[in-house]
Structures are given as C-alpha cells and as structure tokens.
Design a protein around this nucleic acid. Structure first.
Lengths: 141, 141
DNA sequence: CTAAATGCAAACGGTTTGCAATGCT
DNA sequence: AGCATTGCAAACCGTTTGCATTTAG
C-alpha cells in the first residue's frame, strides 16, 4: 500500500504536522516499510532522494511524529531505537537468531492489572524474545 | 531480606559462577535494592566499599549474571539498562512523571499468542508507561 | 520578511574493547 | 606459575545540542 504524496500531506495536516518534504518522505517510508526501521535505515534510504539530508532531520521528524502520536517507539533492540507506524495495540517478537522483528496481535484486555489499579496506563509495550519458525526450520536441515 | 556473604557465595556457585568479591557485592546489592538499578547506581554504591572498583567490572559482572540467568535486563528506560534480580514473570510500570519503576504481577498464560504459534518464546517483557498513583494524588493537592 | 525547517559539526554518555595489572590456587 | 578477574583509558556509536543556513508562505 503506497502512500501517495497528497494523502501523506493530508494525513500529516490532520495530525497537526506541517507537511515538509522530509516529513512526507519519512511518513511514506514508514508506511511502505513496516519492519520497524531504525534512524539509520531510514536515512540510508532517503539520502538517495535527498542528497543534502542529515540524520538530525530524521531524528527531529521522528521526535515530532512521536509527540503527535502517529508513530510508536519500539525499544526491543537495546542498541538502537526503532519506529512503528502501526500504533494499534500489538506485540513485538524478536528472533534471537535472525534478529527479525515480528508483529503479533495480542489482546491485553483480559490481563489482570490489579497491582497497578488506580494508575493511568498510557502505553503497553509487549516484547517477546525467542526463536522464530523460520530459524527453527533452518536448524532442522 | 539481607543476603549474607556465605549464602551469596553458595547461590553464585549453584548457578555456575565463581564467587569473587565484586560478584558477591553486586549480588547482595541487587538483592537489597530491588528497584532495578542501573550500572551507575550500583557503581556509586559499591565504590564506597571497594575504592579501586571500576565500572567495567560492574558491566562484566552483570553480563555474566545475564548469561547465567540470575538477573533480567529491564529496558524500559531508553537511556540506560537496568537489572532485575527477580527473574520470575512480572511486568514493569514506569511513571512518566516521577520515573519510578513499579513491578506488577501479570498472568500472561491467558494471552492469545496465535500469531507466533510454533515460535520458541524465551522471554516475555511487559512494559507499561503512564502515571502512578502517587503522582496522581500529588496533582490533586 | 519572518518563522520554521534543515544541515553541520561537535559534544554527550552509556557501553565496549584491548590490554596491562592484580589476585587467587 | 598460570589462569581468571579486575582496572584503566581509549574507542565506539547512537543520539543530542547549538548554531548557521536554507526554505516556504
């Protein structure tokens, strides 16, 4: 699903973000690459289109997107931050072998949250680690 | 609950760790301060007892503890790593106001993990963010 | 014209690394 | 003596900062 420039502009405006060139490109990249990219991955891709691009701008843009709640920060990787355009409730699974990150649906509504009753919960981050199916099959060869 | 030096030694040996002075002290610190301390916090405390202590040794020790599975890494704080001597299944709540980290019991057995069926799950990390009761009360004054 | 957005280079800070010094058996 | 542990200093690297430059309405 490609995010046309016009739709991207509208989308940003709707969320109170002035649609600059970089912001539109980053939004489109996130939408086309839902693999929770890092700043570096986004930068390496967009520098092809925008030769004067700086990483600072990527950082600024993602910071703004986080504030406006159109992306989520994924901290499953201890080294660098990843960004997810899918802000709906779901979990992330990281394979210890291939390091791929999988999304998975998770219904947290049934969870017993007695211990933190009366707390305001703004975000639930569910990170699993283990070995994915592909890597398990690989090791059976 | 204080971890006597002898018990700490036994505990380390049982988990295949040679009990050096630093390892014993770090274990005792983690056991006495179950607030998921950072490397810096541990270092600042232990340097009082061991004037020649280096941060590298704290890093080494915690790395070893992680390998031997007697501590868990808590990555709820994006800036620095925290370490938890309680390796039983439980969630962590971080207050956005006071930054305190609360443990809470959570029963993940009821979660629907259909999407990652066939995966080996080694670790489930549950991080919540929001506002804790204390800070909510504070704002009512 | 003006304010916002972008770019650049340096700084920052938690963590890692290589190696020398020390400690333990 | 020999091997593991510890300490030191520098390197590393993702991220932040300050400020100059450019862009857009």
């Amino acid at each position: 699903m490609v995010f046309k420039t016009d739709s991207a502009k509208k989308y940003l405006k709707k969320h109170g973000i002035k649609p600059s060139t970089i912001r539109i490109k980053v939004l489109q990249y996130l939408n086309d690459n839902k693999c929770h990219p890092t700043v570096d991955e986004i930068y390496k891709e967009l520098i092809e289109d925008i030769p004067t691009l700086s990483k600072t701008s990527i950082y600024n843009t993602l910071e703004l997107f986080l504030e406006k709640n159109i992306v989520d920060l994924v901290s499953i990787d201890d080294k660098e931050s990843r960004y997810d355009i899918d802000t709906s409730a779901h979990g992330h699974f990281k394979c210890d072998i291939c390091n791929k990150i999988y999304d998975f649906n998770i219904d947290t509504s049934g969870l017993n949250e007695e211990d933190i009753k009366g707390f305001i919960i703004n975000k639930r981050k569910i990170y699993y680690e283990g070995i994915c199916k592909d890597c398990l099959n690989e090791s059976n060869h």
